[in-house]
Design a binder for these strands. Structure first.
Lengths: 213, 213
DNA sequence: AGGCTGGTAGTCAACTTTGACTAGCGAGGG
DNA sequence: CCCTCGCTAGTCAAAGTTGACTACCAGCCT
């Protein structure tokens, strides 16, 4: 799965009704341009595609108040909300080595209830375990592991990633179980989007070393 | 950068001359279908594209000995070799959170000399440090880190990844410095491709849990 | 008054990725 | 003998991604 749909659905859903530029700003607010491929082209494409597929409903709107071309506002449909939760659950449980997917899941997990988030993360722990087992088995030649040479480093790297990923997931589970954060149905939700005209309190537009264009 | 070009160039280069299906088998042999998006379509596309760009030279060949359509054999050009080493160096130094890129770099690093591989990995350590600094700075609001809520978990996750990634890179440097593996110019190289007709000694075609199609 | 800059909002062509499909041949079973 | 199965080798359309580009307005500078 690509992370774009999850992020876009999450943003539109939190706004209730949003146009592309607003979604774009939310994703930047979340830092998604740093850790995912959330670029304007991808975002607008995802909006159109999901509108075509009935996950979003598009309203054509007159030219904006602040210059620029006419904009389209989107609302999430019931079908879209279903898809949103499907993607969100998958992002939290599956261990697919795509850190951007997990990051998106973390940012949006509070749309679930605490108990479900915990259950999904426990499932994630099991998925990591299975992945680890599969990797070690794949890279075990019949005539002993010495035959692997430097190729064994690939396996070692993946195993190390799985182990540290599991360790981190475990610590997250502890924090959530200990009462951290406000999940669905627990009162005032954390405000995760920017209101119209509000500016990003984090460093908008800053460049970072390692961006690596 | 996409990892496909690096993998394909590496495979063709080790063969001297190879057709698409051979490359495809090598990548499966390396386990690349597990940890990267190396699928038939991508591989054939990369071959054609790089031939068009002069990185590979294509020979049209009569129908194969073992059934199937006529196949095309490729050789790497001088320009292609340059591009290969550029990509390989980048894969080892840059910390872009794409574990498939590092994996490919690990599998192919022995095409470099030991001293250079070490220098590149040291550079990688510095890149990780910079990335870590950038992430913590981006996610630090003026009024204290308490304002972040669950969004802080995203940062924590990235910082944890950077730290464990650095730790692993450090250990790899130790192993290489300690004399592990055979690098370029150190005699008999490790054989990293399958000869015509040789079968994959690892579990060909095995399914793994977590494959997650 | 004219021009330059910067923010708003989005389009587009080129490229890459994906997954399903094709077509030829040999081996083995009935 | 013929028919299906599986392997060899690859094509293709649809979808996703990228980076450069457009057009409009407001404010500022000169």
């Amino acid at each position: 799965m690509s992370v774009i749909r999850l992020l876009v659905l999450g943003a539109v859903r939190q706004h209730g009704r949003a146009h592309g530029y607003q979604v774009r700003n939310d994703l930047e607010y979340w830092g998604a341009h740093e850790w995912s491929n959330a670029k304007p082209g991808s975002i607008y494409h995802a909006l159109k595609q999901m509108a075509k597929q009935g996950l979003l409903h598009a309203h054509e709107i007159a030219p904006s108040t602040a210059g620029g071309p006419p904009r389209t506002e989107y609302e999430i449909t019931e079908q879209g909300a279903e898809e949103y939760f499907r993607l969100l659950r998958e992002a939290l449980t599956s261990y697919d080595q795509k850190p951007d997917v997990l990051s998106a899941g973390l940012g949006l997990m509070v749309d679930l209830e605490r108990a479900e988030a915990l259950a999904l993360l426990e499932q994630r722990m099991r998925a990591i375990g299975e992945w680890r087992k599969a990797v070690t088995e794949y890279y075990t030649p019949e005539d002993g592991p010495g035959q692997l040479g430097h190729i064994g480093e690939i396996m070692d790297f993946w195993v190390h990633s799985a182990d540290t990923g599991a360790e981190w997931t475990r610590s997250l589970i502890e924090r959530i179980r200990g009462g951290a954060y406000t999940f669905a149905g627990e009162g005032e939700p954390f405000v995760g989007v920017l209101a119209e005209g509000e500016e990003n309190p984090y460093g908008t537009g800053k460049r970072h070393p390692g961006d690596d264009d």
